[in-house]
Write a protein that binds this DNA or RNA. Structure first.
Length: 485
RNA sequence: GGCGCCGUACCCAAGUGGUAAGGGAGAGGUCUGCAAAACCUUUAUUCGGCGGUUCGAAUCCGCCCGGCGCCUCCA
């Protein structure tokens, strides 16, 4: 089955057909950098990372753009609140750009730890003020926007298709919307393209309408089109951005260019904690830095990929711990497999293709082709784990071709595509040049001698002591192995 | 109030017309001095409830119950 993706725009799974053969242009809404990233960010960016990795695995030439929002994102009431970055900067008494810089770095740090590959371009909103102004001018020229006292608003009633992404009807929307009597807007759903900067506002730029700053939605339209063209394949982001953010992006972009904006809209679902949405404003969010204190970042990545990107994911210690145990099982098996292949290399490289592995790989790819069904793909990985462990427990020499094929399978599927294999998996790898491995092995030789003399009290003492230092000792039929926990 | 999503074992979670994946936890067994790891067996006659369509439904339709999301910033 060819790749199918769920398109929010059509509310259906569609076969993926790129605008240009062999190429994929994708834009994913990035973070607003005014705080440390949390588990919710991780779900979004890990999900899209797996998606990007899969496109690359399928040998598409991918151009992946992700914005960094460092201006224009307001708190509270749309278009009436305070800029989030600027608000934070006042609390911390530093320049807004210091806030943006600090949390951008924090974001990259956490994403790197989780094996999220960097996007090709990370445009900053403040670095694209000119492009945004140009787009606002274009919208004014085309009659889709109006200026009031130094601010420019998009006139939603001029765009008949407004609401097509989120399935909203303008007239019905008004009923539930708070209407600010003082607002300059002609229609409550109109949104700011450019805002006049009040005195005291720090982040401000010169524009044809006086000093001001860009609205939140305009940055994504201006920057995505700058790097991906007026039309591109995929736009992704969290479900909570479907409305109003993405709806507004469509309106602005299509009115500015007169062309359909994005072919496929992909939205990941949200993370809940105790059944409730986790959000910055709700104060119930768990930052990644806190989560990393308890769990390996790759365990969290695995936990995220064990549920589908369009499903909600409920975060709980019980659930993550379960994922951790499962993850360790997977990693252990891959480690043992590689260990076996390197310590007892086969006399000759057998290139026979194993049908068992091929069948698993086909299942894996077919799961990924079905709208990136990573939970199902991971289940296939575990089928492989079982088979490998059986082979490792049997006649290893005979199974070598098969084991080789499995090694490649895990490399491709778990490593390259899902990104859940650690960089260094070498069985007993410790920091290079360290005395540690030598010492551990010395201790294990002493322990082995004790075991031969049935001095089990002593041998157990060594094992327990090493265990407390984070070194796991396992006695197997063919000798004692150790690894770091 | 409007729009939408979800409810699968003790927990997490796939499956969306052909007779219940996977992970964790539990139970029994093999191996082992023990432990760990691994392997084998086992754990939902059943998918929130009630009706309907169908040869056949967890999957489609209707109603009801329960939970959540968006409609205001949020990944």
């Amino acid at each position: 089955m060819p790749l199918h993706v769920y398109n929010t725009l059509s509310r259906a799974k569609e076969e993926f057909k790129p605008l240009q053969p062999g190429r994929v242009g994708i834009y994913v809404c990035g973070p607003t950098v005014y705080g440390h990233p949390h588990i919710g960010h991780a779900k979004s960016y890990v999900s899209f990372d797996a998606i990007i990795r899969y496109f690359r695995y399928l040998e598409y030439k991918v151009l992946y753009v992700q914005n960094i929002t460092d201006v224009g994102h307001l708190t509270d009431d749309a278009d009436e609140g305070e800029d989030k970055i600027e608000q934070r900067s006042k609390i911390d008494k530093v320049h807004p750009m210091q806030i943006a810089e600090e949390y951008t770095q924090s974001y990259f740090e956490d994403m790197d730890a989780m094996g999220v590959l960097r996007a090709d371009i990370y445009p900053r909103a403040t670095g694209h003020i000119i492009e945004q102004i140009q787009m606002v001018e274009e919208l004014l020229r085309n009659g889709f926007a109006y200026e009031v006292d130094g601010s420019v608003y998009f006139d939603v009633r001029k765009f008949g298709e407004y609401g097509k992404l989120s399935g909203r009807v303008l007239d019905e929307m008004v009923a539930g919307t708070r209407v600010d009597k003082r607002s300059d807007k002609r229609h409550p759903a109109d949104f700011a393209l450019w805002k006049k900067a009040e005195p005291g506002h720090i982040m401000r730029w010169i524009s044809p309408w006086g000093e001001g700053y860009p609205g939140w939605h305009i940055e994504c339209s201006a920057m995505s089109m700058k790097y991906l063209g007026q039309q591109f394949d995929i736009h992704g982001g969290g479900m909570d951005n479907q409305f109003p953010h993405h709806e507004c992006e469509i309106a602005q972009s299509e009115c500015a260019t007169g062309k359909p904006f994005v072919k496929y809209w992909l939205h990941n679902n949200l993370v809940t904690v105790n059944g409730h949405k986790m959000g910055k404003s709700l104060g119930n969010f768990i930052t990644l830095k806190d989560a990393f204190k308890k769990y390996d970042p790759l365990v969290l990545r695995f936990f995220i990929l064990q549920s589908h990107y369009r499903s909600t994911l409920d975060y709980s210690d019980q659930a993550v711990q379960g994922a951790q145990t499962g993850y360790e099982k997977l990693i252990n098996t891959v480690r043992n497999l590689r260990d076996e292949l390197t310590t007892h290399p086969p006399a000759e490289r057998n290139t026979d293709v194993s049908s068992a592995v091929n069948s698993l790989k086909a299942k894996f790819l077919s799961a990924m082709n079905d709208d990136f069904n990573t939970p199902q793909a991971i289940a296939v990985l575990f089928d492989g784990v079982k088979e490998v462990n059986q082979l490792l427990g049997g006649d290893v020499k005979k199974a070598f071709p098969e084991l080789n094929a499995f090694d490649a399978f895990f490399d491709n599927c778990a490593g390259e595509i899902l990104g859940i294999l650690p960089d260094k998996l070498d069985a007993q790898a410790l920091e290079g040049g360290s005395l540690e491995p030598t010492l551990v092995e010395l201790l294990l030789r002493v322990r082995d001698a004790a075991r031969t003399e049935k001095a089990f009290a002593l041998s157990d003492k060594i094992r327990d002591g090493l265990s407390q230092l984070g070194i796991i000792v396992e006695d197997r039929k063919d000798g004692t192995r150790w690894r770091k926990s």
